[in-house]
């Protein structure tokens, strides 16, 4: 027995083996760090590249002008307006439906097969490629409901696309409301809806807002479904009503990037800068709103 034990100790204490294992660990550590930093480097390079190409082209005229055959005269005004109108309308449509669905699923729906089915369905919808929503929009809103290739049709399409995001994040926010607060409300003789509006939604609003902003960001950056719905890539007028045809920032950028003239690549970069600035602004607003409504509970 004692011989065997000594052998084992020698094997375990083997300094060469231990050193090798340690080196392996160090190497792996470095490799993993590189993987993680890869994203950072790409992001930095991407932003640098776009700023370098686009900044010289960014000007007040670029914001105010309409697209043109000449890179120097090209502007982003109709696309900017189209994007803003689109996300506004999309939010107006998707927000009440999304939050309402979340309230329904968390507070009203029974614990049954049908509720499970709705939840499963929402999870599936969240994974459907965005271009498929475009085809739905084309068949239903543009053609069947006769909205044409309008901002309205685009907004309904986008609203359905972002609905799962709003529903799922609102559900999580509603689930985080402490049970004791709900009980306190019910114990004061309130109905379900009164408890929803009096306690649950005020408490859940930061989480709901975060999800909504995520969905607005998504709607701002999406191009594929709108191309299918029939947004134009060249718009020489500013949309004035929701029934007008339209373009958006990503579609305009796509259009410029596919032009053969080299300068249009830089115009596209300038457009990307505008798009990223709006995304940044939207997300900052979200963070400010969230912090403002954040409720800190004392234990």
């Amino acid at each position: 027995m004692s011989v065997l034990k000594e052998d084992l100790v020698r094997l375990i204490d083997n300094p060469v083996g231990l050193r090798r294992r340690k080196i392996k660990n160090k190497f792996f550590h470095g490799l993993l760090f590189l993987c993680t930093i890869f994203g950072v480097v790409v992001l930095a390079f991407l932003l640098y590249d776009i700023l370098k190409k686009g900044l010289p082209w960014l000007s007040v005229d670029f914001i105010k002008n309409f697209p043109s055959r000449f890179p120097k005269k090209s502007g982003i005004y109709p696309a900017l307006l189209g994007s803003l109108m689109l996300i506004l309308l999309t939010t107006v449509i998707a927000f009440p439906v999304g939050v309402g669905t979340a309230v329904y699923l968390e507070e009203y729906a029974g614990n049954n097969k049908f509720t499970e089915f709705i939840k499963l369905n929402i999870a599936n919808l969240a994974g459907v490629p965005s271009i498929i929503y475009g085809m739905l929009g084309l068949a239903v809103f543009v053609r069947a409901l006769g909205m044409g290739r309008s901002i309205l049709a685009g907004s309904f399409t986008m609203a359905l696309l972002v609905l799962p995001i709003i529903i799922i994040s609102s559900q999580e926010a509603i689930r985080s409301v402490p049970g004791i607060l709900k009980q306190a409300s019910y114990a004061l003789g309130t109905t379900k809806w009164q408890t929803v509006t009096g306690v649950i939604l005020p408490y859940a609003i930061p989480g709901i807002l975060t999800g909504t902003i995520l969905s607005v960001s998504r709607a701002l950056g999406e191009a594929a479904p709108l191309i299918v719905v029939g947004a134009l890539s060249y718009v020489s007028f500013a949309p004035s009503s929701v029934m007008d045809s339209f373009t958006t920032l990503p579609i305009q950028i796509f259009n410029w990037a596919s032009m053969p003239k080299k300068d249009f690549q830089n115009v596209a970069a300038a457009g990307i800068i505008v798009l990223l600035i709006i995304l940044l602004a939207v997300n900052s607003i979200a963070i400010i709103l969230r912090d403002k409504y954040q409720i800190r509970m004392k234990d």
């Binding site: 994203g39 790409v42 992001l43 991407l46 590249d49 776009i50 960001s217 701002l220 950056g221 999406e222 191009a223 990503p250 950028i253 796509f254 990037a257 596209a268 970069a269 990307i272 798009l275 990223l276 995304l279 997300n283």
Partner: peptide, 12 residues
């Protein structure tokens, strides 16, 4: 990185 629109990656 996850929030950057795909059009930007396309351009890249």
């Amino acid at each position: 990185l996850a929030g950057i629109p795909s059009i930007v990656y396309g351009y890249f």
